[in-house]
């Protein structure tokens, strides 16, 4: 019994530490993670951090430039908008909406996508075909156009925009889950669970699903930024959050006519969207590298 007496490999580091080891190697990802953390803190403590209320209008100070420009004041570091509202306060408050949109959309899309994907992966061929063709139809539409149509039907509001974006993002999760389920299902451990008497729900959620999660987590991180971007786009088109909500996309839309006279009114919300989306994408890439078992060396 040679294989019993030999000592097993020394204890491997915990999953989290191993993950951090691989994640750390990607500098961009770590940078993205820090920015994302900052964004999270700003969103969480927005009422404390913001100098003014986001909707408070200072009528005497409309379209004030940022503090370092001529005519600017340190009372409003990033300037004011046409109604005299403080840009900095609105941006900080807007982080909350963006974060909220990201979390809600990703949660709805992931939950629905995983359940439909699992069903498609385990279903007989005819049901699988029906589900996947429906998903193909949803995917065939330009995503923003479909979201616009859905919002037009449901009525413009932030909630409806989120539902629409979640529906548009869902098929990606369905395909991803179904693909991993189909490859995992073939493996012997699933068969042995079946021989041990496991019924379908147990096979689906306890045996197969945990082994399919890595690509889904990566997709969730990446679609967080897509959700923010789409919500901003819908807001810009007037189909998302309605004024005076300080949502970044809506802010852009409101400031469109001042683009030549007051650059700061348009620039800051755009920069905020850009930095957030970029940071999340960088983080998602690092997440993919760290969670992909094929890239591991040990």
């Amino acid at each position: 019994m040679t294989d019993v007496t030999q000592t097993t490999a020394p204890d491997r580091p915990s999953a989290l530490r191993e993950f951090w080891y691989y994640f750390r190697e990607n500098r961009g990802a770590v940078f993205g993670l820090w920015i994302f953390g900052l964004f999270l803190l700003v969103a969480a403590f927005a009422p404390i951090l913001a100098p003014y209320d986001a909707t408070e209008q200072f009528r005497d100070y409309t379209l004030l430039p940022p503090a370092w420009q001529e005519g600017g004041s340190w009372a409003f570091p990033l300037g004011t908008d046409p109604l005299g509202r403080d840009m900095l306060s609105r941006l900080i408050e807007g982080a909350r909406f963006s974060f909220f949109v990201g979390v809600v959309v990703v949660t709805i899309a992931t939950t629905g996508g995983i359940i439909i994907g699992l069903i498609a992966g385990f279903a007989p061929r005819w049901l699988d075909t029906i589900i996947m063709r429906i998903m193909d139809i949803v995917l065939a539409f330009p995503s923003l156009l479909l979201a616009l149509v859905l919002v037009a039907i449901l009525g413009p509001s932030l909630t409806n925009a989120m539902i629409a974006i979640a529906i548009v993002l869902q098929p990606h999760y369905v395909r991803l889950t179904r693909a991993s389920v189909m490859s995992e299902r073939q493996k012997d451990y699933v068969t042995s669970a079946k021989v041990a008497g496991a019924r379908l729900p147990r096979l689906m959620f306890k045996t197969v699903l945990p082994n399919c999660l890595a690509p889904i987590i990566v997709q969730a991180a990446l679609s967080f930024s897509t959700a923010i971007l789409d919500a901003a786009a819908l807001g810009f088109l007037g189909m998302g959050a309605q004024p005076p909500t300080p949502e970044w996309g809506t802010m852009l839309a409101e400031a469109r006519e001042f683009i030549l006279r007051a650059w700061w009114v348009v620039t800051w919300p755009g920069v905020a969207i850009l930095i957030t989306v970029l940071a999340i994408n960088l983080m998602g890439d690092g997440l993919r590298d760290a969670l992909d078992p094929k890239l591991k060396r040990s």
């Binding site: 012997d188 068969t191 042995s192 945990p210």
Partner: peptide, 27 residues
């Protein structure tokens, strides 16, 4: 009950040995 050929595919990589052994009893 059955024992499969490939010992690398026949154990659920996300379960501890204890869970793997107890699962048939739980079911």
């Amino acid at each position: 009950q059955i024992v499969f050929q490939d010992p690398y595919g026949s154990l659920n990589p996300r379960q501890r040995i204890g869970q793997i052994l107890m699962e048939p009893l739980i079911i």
